[in-house]
Amino acid sequence: MTESPNGRLVVRLRGATVMLDRFPALARCDFDAYESEVVFVQGPNGSGKTTLLRLLGGLVEAMSGSVLVFGRDPKAEARAIRREVSYLAHSYQMYEDLSGRENLEFFAVAAGCDLDDAIEWAQRLGLATRDLDARFRVLSAGQRKKISAAIALSRRTELLLIDEPHALLDQATKAILDLGFTEAARAGKTVIVASHELDRISALATRRYRMSNGFATLVESP
């Protein structure tokens, strides 16, 4: 793994092309992320941000180019890498007829992470006990997002892939979430946040990319 003044290289993309059917969602894309960084990826809808995050999580495969996460190929060693990766996606990835708490309990057992941490995060993000015990189905979009975020943040992973975290959330929660991201980076983790607008996170980011047409341009690095 390459050492640099920025620390350990965690993600390295060179000329990565990802085809979604016949459409190049990523086109010969380069991208780097180091440990202890908050990386901000900004770009309009359809510029390839989500595909970039999914590629790093091994959910899609690069047709050409090289993709390394922790020095390994995320598609070939998907299960090993995913133990080190949290993914907060657009979709909630929770079960509608379980309560928030039951959802957290289930994922804690299935994924082998700490339930208390997850509940603590849910509370920190402003979920009342009443909301935690209500069925997921009846929660508002913002409350649902908080439960998904709680499990993503509580997993003890080294790389966090965050897709549009602030959509649907109120100001207070956005601030707590941002704090969570900076804390994580300070603890040596890497946080990659994608957003279509010039997000408040931009101010916290140490590295910034602008994406358009499936290509990432480095705008600022430490």
Binding site: R22, N213, G214, F215
Partner: peptide
Amino acid sequence: ADLEVENAIRERLSAEEVR
């Protein structure tokens, strides 16, 4: 289909340069 892929990539990247 592969050739079409090459074209699609080139098209997408050229749009990028224009921007």
